[in-house]
Amino acid sequence: MKRAMLIPLTGLLAAAMAHLGWFEMRRPATDEGTAGVLAWLQDDLHLSADQFARIKALHERSGPQIQQLAEQATEMRTELESFENRRRNDGRVDFLAFAQFIEQRREFQRICTESTRRFLTAAASEMTPGQRARYLERFEPALGLNSGGIN
């Protein structure tokens, strides 16, 4: 009886050890900061060290401009919220100011989309045709999804 119990227990132990060992060995890293994202991109696209260095430099060069645009987008969102609050509280809408704001916003979104497209093209130009196809397949569709904008 003891032996009959020992074998299933050994099996259970073997399953648990194999599971934990394999999981720890293959578990994905959890760093999602810029360095982690770029490391993932290098791994995903099989970028060489040279390609990776150039693409990383491109990110570093474009970072401040993208950040600046992001801050402008935040300001525009705040402005849109203030239009909405005024409409709710006072029941009044300054249609002229709102139309100007919408026009500005449309132009701003065009600039942002253009900035992203330029970045994607610049990064893709550092890649081999296979890498480029995969890169654009992954990230280009997102440009279309964002055309809805800052709301």
Binding site: H59, L69, A73, N146
Partner: peptide, 10 residues
């Protein structure tokens, strides 16, 4: 995408 798209970084 948030790194490269200002509209997503908002």
């Amino acid at each position: 995408m948030r790194l490269i798209d200002p509209l997503l970084a908002v």
